[in-house]
Nucleic acid binder design. Structure first.
Lengths: 352, 352
DNA sequence: TTGATTTGCACAATCGTTTGTTCTATAATA
DNA sequence: TATTATAGAACAAACGATTGTGCAAATCAA
């Protein structure tokens, strides 16, 4: 019984409606796209067409429509790891904005791999997305340049490329890092380790710049050996912390470049039998829902993730409406240092 | 200069290639879809066509292709909140599997709203997805029944509907809850609060059943007033915990139905000046990357999120290949109780 | 009544692919 | 040499929607 004679229902088309009403499919199309007035379709006809369309449960075929109009109302989203709350929050807000205006999002997870990123883009192009929102994984940008030359509207999020003529939405990584390290100095720390993310990305470069400038402001030289690490992942946090903690004298503070890095660092700290903030202070980039619930509530550099998503979508949309030409160079969003318990005030500077 | 005379590059089509090579577009199509042998296209022609396709940078138009073949190699994914790590992990694994076979995922966030869920489904249908993976938000299922009668392949994840003839992938919520509450009893707890999620969902029903059966096994009556709450969100966790903690005598343990619920509960516990596990023990559904780093490392019921995504996609795919007819009734994945520090062993039962 | 307008709609091409069928040389067979 | 196979490729019709233009009938002006 159950579904054994199931037959794939046939799709209702404009022609079906046209036949039933006794008009041409042209007329049906014009009615259903709200162009009755423009093409002088009588009120009576308009009424009947709408009625039967409703009765038949007509759903426009976006493939056919897109083929003809060259607009799919679909955008591609390429991010390195959708399971990372930082990105999934961005994704969510992009999707919400998109749906508000009847657009859909095709999601591609590049898995932190430039090759997969390139493939993803190809796939999205073949699906005729109207535009692209992308968080590029690496320092490589020639494939991005290619997209631009293609005329496909694009906005880059989280990272940006100085030489690329492409709208971007990023956090003020420089300011965020500067404030964090400033704060360490204010709390009398002098030896501050930095576990960085992927090197040569704008994100990382800017944060390092902030780290350095904070040192300069404080009149402290930068100890290059205190800058460790090479990715935004948890494992790198663990390794980086291990290295820092093994140094003598041990740094009194760690600045972690991502939420995952700080998680990894916490494991290392725990293993060394040290405690936060008594033995070691820590500030982490990326505010998370759980930040305040950690063993020691974490002082973090919060980025505006929701806003990033919303703004990115709106910029992309305006670029699409502007014939594909960018309407803005880019937007940088301020960060906020949220103070909690993971930084200890030292009584006296630890270094000479 | 930069891009001011930018012109949207024209799309390369089969016809373009055909013209250049001097064959018909039929031939080009057949070569490029690997049907040279089948249609006896000479090796020479095959070679040249492939060559020029490459040179011209041909990318097939999936819209046109889909229009003709009725297959888009695109699937819809509808989930209540992509920013929730539980769902984003599932989403990630779905996407990874999908891309392995050249499929794309259109993401829709229903925002825990049945109305939006219905709209999302409509939108996905109009985009001609080959199938749907959905985590329905509510207890309502008539719109799902409609999809099934439409013949659109679908698999439901996380939740399921007994009366619906649709493949599902869920966790063994009953077993997970049973083990957790069992464990509480083993640790001599007798008064165990349960902060539930959305009522009348299969997830919640099963967990409550586990909660009850564990009581029965232990020969303990269920105090209905200890079952509180009505959603999987953080706010509900806070409110639920507030209510439980205000009771006299205060329950000695709380079972939280989601990661967000336990986060909210922790705020309440903190506000009451209580500490975990000394004053109150807690077990939370959903293992998270941060679970072990919490103020008190959290004992959790871990679900197989990655596997859920991977399996869901594969089931959907096999259903599609099977002419839309389900190949399995459904799959339930075991949970695992991961022991940490948030449950205290009581020395003697607290109640009579 | 005649010509000019307006009203209301239909024709047919088009978007880029796929695919069942047909067509034309050439090679094989008798 | 006449006939039949076969290899190699082209024709043309879809798929479902949009859209510039054309064409009657109805209305109006004179």
């Amino acid at each position: 019984m159950k579904g054994s004679f199931l037959v794939q229902n046939k799709q209702i088309t404009l022609d079906n409606i046209a036949d039933q009403v006794g008009v041409s499919c042209t007329t049906v199309s014009r009615v259903l796209t709200g162009q009755s007035k423009k093409y002088r379709i009588s009120d009576r006809t308009t009424e009947i067409v709408q009625q039967t369309a409703r009765e038949l449960g007509y759903v426009p075929d976006q493939l056919a429509r897109g083929l003809r109009t060259k607009r799919t109302n679909t955008m591609g989203l390429v991010i390195p790891d959708i399971s990372n709350p930082f990105f999934s929050t961005i994704a969510r807000n992009i999707e919400i904005q998109a749906r508000k205006v009847g657009n859909s999002i095709i999601l591609a997870d590049s898995q932190e791999d430039t090759q997969l990123e390139i493939e993803s883009i190809r796939l999205l192009q073949s699906r005729k997305v109207d535009g692209l929102i992308i968080c590029p994984v690496g320092e490589e940008s020639t494939h991005l340049k290619n997209i631009i030359s293609t005329g496909l509207p694009m906005v880059i999020i989280d990272r940006y490329f100085p030489k690329l003529d492409c709208t971007y939405v990023v956090s003020d990584n420089y300011q965020g890092a500067l404030e964090a390290v400033d704060y360490f100095f204010k709390m009398s720390h002098r030896s501050i380790g930095y576990i960085q993310g992927r090197v040569n990305t704008s994100v990382n470069n800017e944060r390092i710049r902030g780290y350095r400038d904070a040192h300069e402001k404080a009149g402290q030289p930068v100890d290059e050996s205190l800058i460790v690490g090479d990715s935004f992942g948890k494992r790198n946090g663990y390794i980086g912390a291990k290295i820092l903690l093994a140094k003598t004298p041990r740094p009194t503070a760690i600045f972690a470049a991502s939420n995952l890095i700080s998680l990894g660092a916490m494991t290392a700290i725990q293993e060394e039998g040290l405690s936060i903030p008594d033995d070691i202070s820590i500030i982490s980039f990326d505010e998370q829902p759980y930040s305040e619930y950690l063993a020691t509530p974490m002082t973090t550099v919060a980025q505006q993730t929701s806003e990033t998503g919303e703004i990115a979508f709106k910029l992309l949309q305006s670029q699409i409406l502007n014939d594909g030409k960018p309407t803005t160079e880019g937007i940088v969003l301020p960060t906020e240092l949220v103070f909690r318990k993971s930084v200890k005030k030292l009584n006296h500077p630890t270094s000479e």
